[in-house]
């Protein structure tokens, strides 16, 4: 067992581009679910809309990538309005149903044969649509620090990605300690009470949905740019549920919860995978029990088991406050 290699791989994943994407997706979900109590089960839809807007505009319509980013933000706002206008006046569960369905509709439309010309069907869109972005790369040599190796492009994506994470974490921190944040948290506790105090609950929920959705779109930008391609099946419901896992692992309604959750989630996922892979390769796990091909599935089972244990013994997540969580039960 090459423990050095295992740890190197796991650490690289923990600070890598996937950790960034899921941290951003979960920061958006934290705004929705953690602070406002909105059950958005369609965060993947916001990522897809962000990613596809950029890819389609740059590749098919030759739009500048910076305008495409703006359009991606705009698309996320429109999606939030579409989701919010009919559902935010209703009970919380309606938003959950509508968001999960909408995210799937977006994915199905993106992979549809009839719109292949624009969205590329199930293959998605590949192309050098990040060129303008990579032209700004100030790191011509990439990075080779100890075991961390990044190509110039990867390094640039990772640096910009973490900068975005820092910016959105800071914005969350600022806004959640303001009177606006107080209204938002109060809505999570009891909408009717907030209405009885003269606040337009619908309006605040809409703002929250838009804000979290835009952060989701940024996660989509990073997803698209880092891979230089968009593929519809990357934006399935599994993405949303991993983002929830990340959020709950780190601690909902905590500013740093999504970030810590994402780093730990990806570290663990790769750590478990590498340990299993080496154990199978070195016959520590016999072949009748697990073959190398099964490692990919088993790692999810083990990480899922870990999450279950976490929920049982530390339901508030890494950063959460157990006392605060227990308050719910007293209602």
């Amino acid at each position: 067992m090459d423990w050095t290699f295992i740890f190197q791989q796991a650490i690289s994943a923990g600070i890598g581009v996937n950790a960034i994407i899921f941290a951003l997706a979960a920061i958006g979900l934290n705004m929705h679910f953690g602070y406002t109590g909105l059950l958005n089960f369609g965060q993947a839809g916001f990522l897809a809309v962000g990613a596809y807007t950029v890819a389609v505009l740059v590749v098919n319509f030759d739009v500048s990538i910076w305008l495409a980013f703006l359009a991606g933000i705009g698309s996320a706002v429109v999606l939030a309005l579409l989701l919010g206008i009919p559902t935010l006046r209703l009970r919380a569960d309606y938003l959950a149903i509508v968001t999960i369905a909408t995210a799937e509709i977006i994915r199905q439309v993106a992979r549809s044969v009839s719109l292949r010309e624009y969205f590329g069907g199930s293959d998605g869109i590949t192309g050098k649509f990040g060129k303008d972005f990579f032209d700004l790369n100030p790191f011509p040599n990439g990075l080779s620090l100890a075991f961390l190796r990044y190509t110039p492009n990867d390094l640039w994506v990772v640096v910009v990605g973490w900068a975005l994470v820092v910016i959105f974490v800071f914005l969350t921190f600022l806004i959640m300690r303001s009177p606006w944040g107080r209204v938002i948290k109060a809505i999570r506790e009891d909408e009717e009470a907030v209405r009885s105090l003269g606040k337009n609950v619908y309006f605040y929920k809409m703002q929250s949905l838009i804000l979290g959705g835009v952060v989701g779109a940024f996660a989509g930008f990073v997803y698209a740019i880092s891979r230089q391609s968009v593929q519809p099946d990357n934006y399935s419901t599994a993405l949303t549920f991993f983002a929830y896992a990340v959020l709950i692992l780190g601690g909902a309604a905590r500013v740093l919860g999504p970030v810590a959750g994402s780093i730990i989630f990806w570290f663990l996922l790769v750590f478990v995978e590498q340990v299993l892979r080496q154990a199978v390769a070195n016959d520590l796990i016999p072949n009748w029990l697990m073959t190398p091909n099964q490692v990919g599935q088993v790692r999810f089972m083990l990480v899922g088991l870990g999450l279950m244990l976490l929920m049982i013994y530390r339901p508030q997540g890494i950063f959460g406050d157990k006392k605060e969580l227990a308050l719910d039960a007293r209602a």
Binding site: I175, S178, P179, W180, R182, V183, K185, A186, R188, E189, D190, E192, A193, V194, S196, L197, G198, K199, Q207, L211, E324, L327, D328, R330, A331
Partner: peptide
């Protein structure tokens, strides 16, 4: 309808009308 996971003081502050800081 006490807002459980807000402090007593935040419950109170929430009641004030037309707060500048309630704009996003």
């Amino acid at each position: 309808k006490a807002l459980f996971r807000l402090s007593v003081m935040d419950n109170m502050r929430l009641g004030a009308k037309n707060q500048i800081g309630e704009g996003i």
